[in-house]
Design a protein around this nucleic acid. Structure first.
Lengths: 157, 157
DNA sequence: CCAACATAGTTGAAGCATCAAGTTTCTTGG
DNA sequence: CCAAGAAACTTGATGCTTCAACTATGTTGG
Protein backbone atom coordinates (compact mmCIF):
# COMPACT_ATOMS: atom_id res chain seq x y z
CA UNK A 1 0.00 0.00 0.00
CA UNK A 2 1.42 3.34 -0.98
CA UNK A 3 1.50 5.85 1.84
CA UNK A 4 0.45 8.89 -0.19
CA UNK A 5 1.26 12.42 0.91
CA UNK A 6 -1.35 14.47 2.72
CA UNK A 7 -2.33 17.73 1.10
CA UNK A 8 -0.10 19.70 3.48
CA UNK A 9 2.81 17.43 2.78
CA UNK A 10 2.32 17.78 -0.94
CA UNK A 11 2.28 21.57 -0.69
CA UNK A 12 5.43 21.54 1.41
CA UNK A 13 7.10 19.09 -0.94
CA UNK A 14 6.39 21.17 -4.05
CA UNK A 15 7.87 24.22 -2.35
CA UNK A 16 10.96 22.32 -1.27
CA UNK A 17 11.36 21.00 -4.80
CA UNK A 18 11.11 24.61 -5.95
CA UNK A 19 13.96 25.56 -3.64
CA UNK A 20 16.13 22.79 -5.04
CA UNK A 21 15.34 23.74 -8.60
CA UNK A 22 15.82 27.49 -8.19
CA UNK A 23 18.30 28.13 -5.41
CA UNK A 24 21.27 26.23 -6.84
CA UNK A 25 21.12 27.98 -10.20
CA UNK A 26 20.69 31.35 -8.46
CA UNK A 27 23.80 30.83 -6.35
CA UNK A 28 25.82 29.48 -9.27
CA UNK A 29 24.84 32.41 -11.38
CA UNK A 30 25.97 35.07 -8.88
CA UNK A 31 29.24 33.31 -8.06
CA UNK A 32 30.09 32.58 -11.64
CA UNK A 33 29.39 36.12 -12.72
CA UNK A 34 31.33 37.79 -9.91
CA UNK A 35 34.07 35.29 -9.07
CA UNK A 36 34.20 32.69 -11.82
CA UNK A 37 33.34 29.96 -9.33
CA UNK A 38 30.61 27.34 -9.08
CA UNK A 39 28.73 27.18 -5.81
CA UNK A 40 30.19 23.74 -5.31
CA UNK A 41 33.71 25.00 -5.99
CA UNK A 42 33.14 27.80 -3.49
CA UNK A 43 31.97 25.28 -0.93
CA UNK A 44 35.12 23.20 -1.40
CA UNK A 45 37.36 26.22 -0.90
CA UNK A 46 35.31 27.30 2.12
CA UNK A 47 35.52 23.87 3.76
CA UNK A 48 39.28 23.82 3.25
CA UNK A 49 39.60 27.29 4.73
CA UNK A 50 37.92 26.13 7.92
CA UNK A 51 40.68 23.67 8.64
CA UNK A 52 43.58 25.01 10.68
CA UNK A 53 46.11 23.96 8.04
CA UNK A 54 43.82 24.67 5.11
CA UNK A 55 44.31 21.02 4.26
CA UNK A 56 42.06 17.95 4.20
CA UNK A 57 42.03 14.46 2.80
CA UNK A 58 39.95 14.09 -0.35
CA UNK A 59 37.51 11.86 1.47
CA UNK A 60 37.16 14.28 4.39
CA UNK A 61 36.49 17.11 1.99
CA UNK A 62 33.99 14.97 0.10
CA UNK A 63 32.08 14.39 3.34
CA UNK A 64 32.13 18.05 4.35
CA UNK A 65 31.03 19.19 0.92
CA UNK A 66 28.32 16.50 0.66
CA UNK A 67 29.81 15.18 -2.55
CA UNK A 68 30.88 11.90 -4.07
CA UNK A 69 34.58 11.30 -4.31
CA UNK A 70 34.24 11.17 -8.05
CA UNK A 71 32.61 14.56 -8.27
CA UNK A 72 35.19 16.00 -5.93
CA UNK A 73 38.08 14.52 -7.87
CA UNK A 74 36.98 16.20 -11.09
CA UNK A 75 36.49 19.54 -9.38
CA UNK A 76 39.75 19.46 -7.47
CA UNK A 77 41.58 18.70 -10.70
CA UNK A 78 40.05 21.80 -12.21
CA UNK A 79 40.80 23.97 -9.16
CA UNK A 80 44.37 22.69 -9.13
CA UNK A 81 44.79 23.62 -12.79
CA UNK A 82 43.71 27.14 -11.81
CA UNK A 83 46.21 27.19 -8.96
CA UNK A 84 43.62 27.59 -6.21
CA UNK A 85 44.43 24.27 -4.61
CA UNK A 86 47.25 21.68 -4.56
CA UNK A 87 47.16 17.94 -4.12
CA UNK A 88 49.96 16.19 -2.26
CA UNK A 89 50.46 12.53 -1.39
CA UNK A 90 50.03 11.73 2.28
CA UNK A 91 53.09 10.57 4.21
CA UNK A 92 51.19 8.15 6.44
CA UNK A 93 49.15 6.26 3.92
CA UNK A 94 49.97 6.06 0.27
CA UNK A 95 46.45 5.79 -0.98
CA UNK A 96 45.42 9.05 0.63
CA UNK A 97 45.55 12.37 -1.22
CA UNK A 98 45.69 15.63 0.70
CA UNK A 99 44.20 18.81 -0.77
CA UNK A 100 45.33 22.25 0.40
CA UNK A 101 44.19 25.75 -0.30
CA UNK A 102 46.96 27.80 -1.92
CA UNK A 103 47.56 31.44 -1.07
CA UNK A 104 45.84 32.34 -4.33
CA UNK A 105 42.93 30.06 -3.52
CA UNK A 106 42.56 31.81 -0.18
CA UNK A 107 42.58 35.21 -1.89
CA UNK A 108 39.93 34.12 -4.35
CA UNK A 109 37.77 32.79 -1.53
CA UNK A 110 38.14 35.97 0.51
CA UNK A 111 37.24 38.06 -2.50
CA UNK A 112 34.20 35.92 -3.33
CA UNK A 113 32.81 35.61 0.19
CA UNK A 114 31.06 38.98 0.68
CA UNK A 115 29.05 38.76 -2.53
CA UNK A 116 28.12 35.17 -1.93
CA UNK A 117 27.10 35.73 1.69
CA UNK A 118 25.06 38.73 0.68
CA UNK A 119 23.26 36.60 -1.91
CA UNK A 120 22.53 33.85 0.60
CA UNK A 121 21.24 36.45 3.03
CA UNK A 122 18.96 38.05 0.45
CA UNK A 123 17.61 34.80 -0.97
CA UNK A 124 17.34 32.71 2.18
CA UNK A 125 17.49 34.60 5.46
CA UNK A 126 16.01 38.03 4.87
CA UNK A 127 12.53 37.90 6.31
CA UNK A 128 13.09 34.77 8.40
CA UNK A 129 12.71 35.10 12.17
CA UNK A 130 15.31 33.56 14.49
CA UNK A 131 12.74 30.87 15.28
CA UNK A 132 12.41 30.06 11.62
CA UNK A 133 16.16 29.87 11.22
CA UNK A 134 16.16 27.35 14.00
CA UNK A 135 13.32 25.39 12.40
CA UNK A 136 15.13 25.39 9.07
CA UNK A 137 18.24 24.03 10.73
CA UNK A 138 16.33 21.23 12.41
CA UNK A 139 14.29 20.24 9.38
CA UNK A 140 17.16 20.36 6.89
CA UNK A 141 19.36 18.49 9.33
CA UNK A 142 16.68 15.87 9.68
CA UNK A 143 16.40 15.38 5.92
CA UNK A 144 20.16 15.08 5.47
CA UNK A 145 20.26 12.45 8.23
CA UNK A 146 17.49 10.44 6.61
CA UNK A 147 19.35 10.44 3.30
CA UNK A 148 22.59 9.36 4.95
CA UNK A 149 20.71 6.69 6.86
CA UNK A 150 19.01 5.42 3.72
CA UNK A 151 22.33 5.13 1.93
CA UNK A 152 23.84 3.23 4.82
CA UNK A 153 21.00 0.77 5.06
CA UNK A 154 20.99 0.07 1.33
CA UNK A 155 24.73 -0.54 1.48
CA UNK A 156 24.50 -2.84 4.46
CA UNK A 157 22.13 -5.31 2.82
CA UNK B 1 29.73 46.44 4.83
CA UNK B 2 29.03 42.78 4.45
CA UNK B 3 26.18 41.50 6.55
CA UNK B 4 27.77 38.21 7.64
CA UNK B 5 25.71 35.27 8.78
CA UNK B 6 25.24 34.62 12.47
CA UNK B 7 26.41 31.28 13.73
CA UNK B 8 22.85 29.91 13.75
CA UNK B 9 22.29 31.10 10.22
CA UNK B 10 25.52 29.50 9.07
CA UNK B 11 24.56 26.17 10.61
CA UNK B 12 21.14 26.33 9.00
CA UNK B 13 22.67 27.31 5.68
CA UNK B 14 25.13 24.44 5.61
CA UNK B 15 22.32 22.01 6.31
CA UNK B 16 20.15 23.49 3.58
CA UNK B 17 23.07 23.27 1.17
CA UNK B 18 23.38 19.64 2.21
CA UNK B 19 19.76 19.04 1.28
CA UNK B 20 20.28 20.58 -2.14
CA UNK B 21 23.41 18.54 -2.76
CA UNK B 22 22.04 15.21 -1.57
CA UNK B 23 18.30 15.14 -2.08
CA UNK B 24 18.22 15.74 -5.84
CA UNK B 25 20.68 12.94 -6.59
CA UNK B 26 18.81 10.63 -4.23
CA UNK B 27 15.50 11.24 -5.98
CA UNK B 28 17.03 10.97 -9.44
CA UNK B 29 18.68 7.74 -8.53
CA UNK B 30 15.50 6.01 -7.33
CA UNK B 31 13.42 7.23 -10.26
CA UNK B 32 16.02 6.39 -12.84
CA UNK B 33 16.56 2.93 -11.44
CA UNK B 34 12.85 2.06 -11.14
CA UNK B 35 11.19 4.06 -13.89
CA UNK B 36 13.90 5.38 -16.21
CA UNK B 37 12.89 8.95 -15.40
CA UNK B 38 14.73 11.98 -14.03
CA UNK B 39 13.10 13.72 -11.10
CA UNK B 40 12.63 16.71 -13.34
CA UNK B 41 11.00 14.59 -16.05
CA UNK B 42 8.71 13.10 -13.42
CA UNK B 43 7.79 16.57 -12.25
CA UNK B 44 6.90 17.63 -15.79
CA UNK B 45 4.64 14.62 -16.27
CA UNK B 46 3.08 15.18 -12.84
CA UNK B 47 2.34 18.86 -13.54
CA UNK B 48 0.73 17.95 -16.86
CA UNK B 49 -1.37 15.29 -15.16
CA UNK B 50 -2.82 17.87 -12.78
CA UNK B 51 -4.39 19.80 -15.62
CA UNK B 52 -7.88 18.76 -16.55
CA UNK B 53 -6.92 18.18 -20.18
CA UNK B 54 -3.44 16.91 -19.39
CA UNK B 55 -2.26 19.80 -21.51
CA UNK B 56 -0.35 23.03 -20.85
CA UNK B 57 1.51 25.68 -22.76
CA UNK B 58 5.29 25.27 -22.64
CA UNK B 59 5.61 28.45 -20.64
CA UNK B 60 2.93 27.43 -18.14
CA UNK B 61 4.63 24.12 -17.63
CA UNK B 62 7.99 25.86 -17.24
CA UNK B 63 6.54 27.99 -14.45
CA UNK B 64 4.90 25.05 -12.68
CA UNK B 65 8.06 22.97 -12.90
CA UNK B 66 10.30 25.86 -11.82
CA UNK B 67 12.37 25.56 -14.96
CA UNK B 68 13.72 27.73 -17.74
CA UNK B 69 12.01 27.44 -21.10
CA UNK B 70 15.26 26.21 -22.54
CA UNK B 71 15.62 23.38 -20.07
CA UNK B 72 12.01 22.43 -20.56
CA UNK B 73 12.32 22.47 -24.32
CA UNK B 74 15.19 19.98 -24.27
CA UNK B 75 13.39 17.67 -21.85
CA UNK B 76 10.06 17.81 -23.67
CA UNK B 77 11.85 16.93 -26.87
CA UNK B 78 13.26 13.86 -25.18
CA UNK B 79 9.94 12.89 -23.61
CA UNK B 80 8.23 13.32 -26.97
CA UNK B 81 10.79 11.04 -28.61
CA UNK B 82 9.86 8.42 -26.00
CA UNK B 83 6.16 8.91 -26.72
CA UNK B 84 5.26 10.13 -23.24
CA UNK B 85 4.20 13.57 -24.41
CA UNK B 86 3.17 15.34 -27.62
CA UNK B 87 3.63 18.91 -28.76
CA UNK B 88 0.95 20.62 -30.82
CA UNK B 89 0.74 24.15 -32.19
CA UNK B 90 -1.84 26.34 -30.52
CA UNK B 91 -4.84 27.46 -32.56
CA UNK B 92 -5.12 30.89 -30.91
CA UNK B 93 -1.58 32.09 -31.08
CA UNK B 94 0.96 30.77 -33.47
CA UNK B 95 3.97 31.24 -31.26
CA UNK B 96 2.53 29.09 -28.50
CA UNK B 97 3.25 25.37 -28.22
CA UNK B 98 0.99 23.09 -26.22
CA UNK B 99 2.33 19.96 -24.52
CA UNK B 100 0.06 17.05 -23.64
CA UNK B 101 0.53 13.85 -21.72
CA UNK B 102 -0.08 10.82 -23.96
CA UNK B 103 -1.86 7.72 -22.71
CA UNK B 104 1.54 6.06 -22.44
CA UNK B 105 2.95 9.01 -20.53
CA UNK B 106 0.07 8.75 -18.10
CA UNK B 107 0.74 5.03 -17.64
CA UNK B 108 4.42 5.66 -16.99
CA UNK B 109 3.58 8.36 -14.45
CA UNK B 110 1.05 6.17 -12.65
CA UNK B 111 3.56 3.33 -12.51
CA UNK B 112 6.33 5.60 -11.20
CA UNK B 113 4.30 7.45 -8.59
CA UNK B 114 4.16 4.94 -5.71
CA UNK B 115 7.90 4.38 -5.60
CA UNK B 116 8.67 8.06 -5.90
CA UNK B 117 6.17 9.10 -3.24
CA UNK B 118 7.49 6.42 -0.93
CA UNK B 119 11.01 7.77 -1.42
CA UNK B 120 9.93 11.34 -0.70
CA UNK B 121 8.12 10.15 2.40
CA UNK B 122 11.14 8.22 3.68
CA UNK B 123 13.69 10.90 2.94
CA UNK B 124 11.71 14.01 3.81
CA UNK B 125 8.56 13.49 5.84
CA UNK B 126 9.14 10.47 8.06
CA UNK B 127 9.90 11.84 11.51
CA UNK B 128 8.56 15.34 10.81
CA UNK B 129 5.64 16.51 12.95
CA UNK B 130 2.65 18.23 11.31
CA UNK B 131 3.97 21.48 12.77
CA UNK B 132 7.30 20.94 11.09
CA UNK B 133 5.61 20.18 7.77
CA UNK B 134 3.87 23.50 8.12
CA UNK B 135 7.13 25.27 8.97
CA UNK B 136 8.85 23.66 5.99
CA UNK B 137 6.08 24.85 3.72
CA UNK B 138 6.33 28.41 4.99
CA UNK B 139 10.12 28.61 4.91
CA UNK B 140 10.55 26.97 1.51
CA UNK B 141 7.76 29.13 0.12
CA UNK B 142 9.49 32.19 1.48
CA UNK B 143 12.79 31.28 -0.17
CA UNK B 144 11.16 30.62 -3.53
CA UNK B 145 9.43 34.00 -3.35
CA UNK B 146 12.66 35.79 -2.56
CA UNK B 147 14.34 34.17 -5.57
CA UNK B 148 11.45 35.08 -7.86
CA UNK B 149 11.49 38.61 -6.47
CA UNK B 150 15.23 38.95 -6.97
CA UNK B 151 14.93 37.85 -10.58
CA UNK B 152 12.15 40.30 -11.22
CA UNK B 153 14.02 43.23 -9.76
CA UNK B 154 17.19 42.47 -11.69
CA UNK B 155 15.16 42.22 -14.89
CA UNK B 156 13.30 45.45 -14.31
CA UNK B 157 16.40 47.62 -14.05
C1' DC C 1 0.43 52.38 -39.29
C1' DC C 2 4.81 50.62 -38.23
C1' DA C 3 9.10 50.50 -35.82
C1' DA C 4 10.69 49.00 -31.70
C1' DC C 5 10.13 46.01 -28.20
C1' DA C 6 8.45 41.93 -25.81
C1' DT C 7 6.96 37.11 -25.70
C1' DA C 8 7.35 32.12 -26.86
C1' DG C 9 10.01 28.72 -28.01
C1' DT C 10 14.08 26.13 -30.23
C1' DT C 11 18.81 24.94 -30.93
C1' DG C 12 23.90 23.94 -30.54
C1' DA C 13 27.90 24.31 -27.94
C1' DA C 14 30.23 24.19 -23.60
C1' DG C 15 30.57 22.79 -19.06
C1' DC C 16 29.02 19.85 -14.98
C1' DA C 17 27.55 15.61 -12.62
C1' DT C 18 27.07 10.76 -12.53
C1' DC C 19 28.10 6.19 -13.42
C1' DA C 20 30.86 2.27 -14.14
C1' DA C 21 35.23 0.57 -14.33
C1' DG C 22 39.99 0.60 -13.17
C1' DT C 23 44.32 1.22 -10.12
C1' DT C 24 46.66 1.16 -6.05
C1' DT C 25 47.08 0.50 -1.30
C1' DC C 26 45.41 -1.38 3.27
C1' DT C 27 43.25 -4.64 6.29
C1' DT C 28 41.79 -9.00 7.92
C1' DG C 29 39.96 -13.77 8.47
C1' DG C 30 41.56 -18.37 8.07
C1' DC D 1 51.23 -15.33 5.83
C1' DC D 2 48.37 -14.41 2.11
C1' DA D 3 44.12 -14.23 -0.43
C1' DA D 4 40.07 -11.79 -0.58
C1' DG D 5 37.95 -7.84 0.09
C1' DA D 6 37.57 -3.02 1.35
C1' DA D 7 39.06 1.84 1.04
C1' DA D 8 40.76 5.85 -1.46
C1' DC D 9 41.02 7.80 -5.19
C1' DT D 10 41.13 8.64 -10.69
C1' DT D 11 39.43 8.47 -15.25
C1' DG D 12 36.47 8.47 -19.53
C1' DA D 13 32.08 8.31 -21.40
C1' DT D 14 27.39 9.69 -21.28
C1' DG D 15 23.77 12.63 -20.46
C1' DC D 16 21.73 16.83 -18.41
C1' DT D 17 21.83 22.01 -17.67
C1' DT D 18 22.93 26.39 -18.92
C1' DC D 19 24.06 30.04 -21.87
C1' DA D 20 23.88 32.76 -25.87
C1' DA D 21 22.04 33.24 -30.15
C1' DC D 22 18.27 32.79 -33.27
C1' DT D 23 13.45 32.55 -35.37
C1' DA D 24 8.96 33.72 -35.36
C1' DT D 25 5.04 35.95 -33.66
C1' DG D 26 2.48 39.50 -30.93
C1' DT D 27 1.93 44.16 -28.84
C1' DT D 28 2.31 49.08 -28.42
C1' DG D 29 3.90 53.99 -28.24
C1' DG D 30 4.45 57.81 -31.43
Amino acid sequence: MTRWLTDDELQAWLKLAGVMLKLSPALDSQLERDSDLTHFEYLCLAMLSEDEDHTLRMSQLATKANASLSRLSHVVKKLEARGLVVRTPCADSRRVTMVSLTEEGWQVLVAAAPGHVETVRCLVFDGLSPDEVDQLQKIAGHIVSQIDGANLSSVRR
